[in-house]
Design a protein around this nucleic acid. Sequence first.
DNA 1: TCCATATGAGACACTAATGTCTCATCAGGG
DNA 2: CCCTGATGAGACATTAGTGTCTCATATGGA
Lengths: 189, 189
Amino acid sequence: MDYACLMAVDPEHVLRAAAALLTRKSTATMDEVAKAAGISRATLHRHFAGRDALVRALESLGIAECEAALDAARLDEGTASEAVRRLVAAIEPAAGLLAFLYSENQLFEGEELNAGWTLIDDRISALFRRGQLGGEFRIDLTPAWLTEALYGLLASGAWMVHSGKGAPKDFQHMIVELLLGGALRREES
Amino acid sequence: MDYACLMAVDPEHVLRAAAALLTRKSTATMDEVAKAAGISRATLHRHFAGRDALVRALESLGIAECEAALDAARLDEGTASEAVRRLVAAIEPAAGLLAFLYSENQLFEGEELNAGWTLIDDRISALFRRGQLGGEFRIDLTPAWLTEALYGLLASGAWMVHSGKGAPKDFQHMIVELLLGGALRREES
DNA sequence: TCCATATGAGACACTAATGTCTCATCAGGG
DNA sequence: CCCTGATGAGACATTAGTGTCTCATATGGA
């Protein structure tokens, strides 16, 4: 699948490079994105009509990765806690991109929000609701809030790792343990 | 010190208006900020040399509000949990501004970071460390991560309220309960 | 070999935002 | 009453980023 020797640019590769760059510097220009992808600005423009289109494509990529992670995590199997652990582990590689899109989405204010996010929200909310109905999770925190909190913790974790204040290997543990167990010490398991 | 009746514009009031606007729309132009503050762009420019200076001033404001909240929360008194509750309650009014500055800081990448943030980080970290040493908080989550997680949850909470997906009255409860107790249901208090 | 095609480089116009300037106005103090 | 000083309005140049265009080049297939 790797046509490295072809002249044709791989849009997928361009998107990955753009995601990696914009994750670090959310205000990067088209010029910088093109350089990061190893192509010229003209070619970048041929594949993505403009910055807007690029962000939309990244949004689609992020949604696709989220859905893939949701699928891979098999949210319906085992306890809800285990499912949350699998989900965080599966979504970790996309956390940086998610954080970028998360902040970018706040700019879409009035504009139409990609329906894909709603589906993802719903799937994650359903997981938390399943945990509540099964008596596993507390019921005074709404599934919507738990979902939003997960996003926030993912962003914080990604930032922590990116800024070097935390080790990548701790990413999953930090997030899952805080989200599920909280900061308070438990008397027993 | 208060020349309210003078023609002179109150820089404090301008900053508040700018904070309120940029909290909602982080890409607002100088023109929009001026309108929001009820002054002309020229006057805005007379008080703040440029957008950069304005953001710096907002940063100082945010730091000041954080420190005021830290003081008001009396982090050294009572249990660490109680102190965290007071802190979240005290910092709530500034959460929006904090979220804005938080995202803005990521753009300062290489540039010098205002030392004020480090002091604030240290004071909050010290609170979590106190909780750990007192056997109140678990020790497998570092104070630095708990601090970062608090920031993330504050941002998520502010976003939740701002987007209308959550009620302002739940702000404190949502954040504190998740941060301290986590999502898992407890067998007893 | 020759051709179709995609790319890279760069020029160009357009836009939005910024920063600076001037000038008229208006309030308050002397 | 007049003068000082701050403001509002708006013109203006500058900059950065974008989007579009042309042309030369190089690759891979027919």
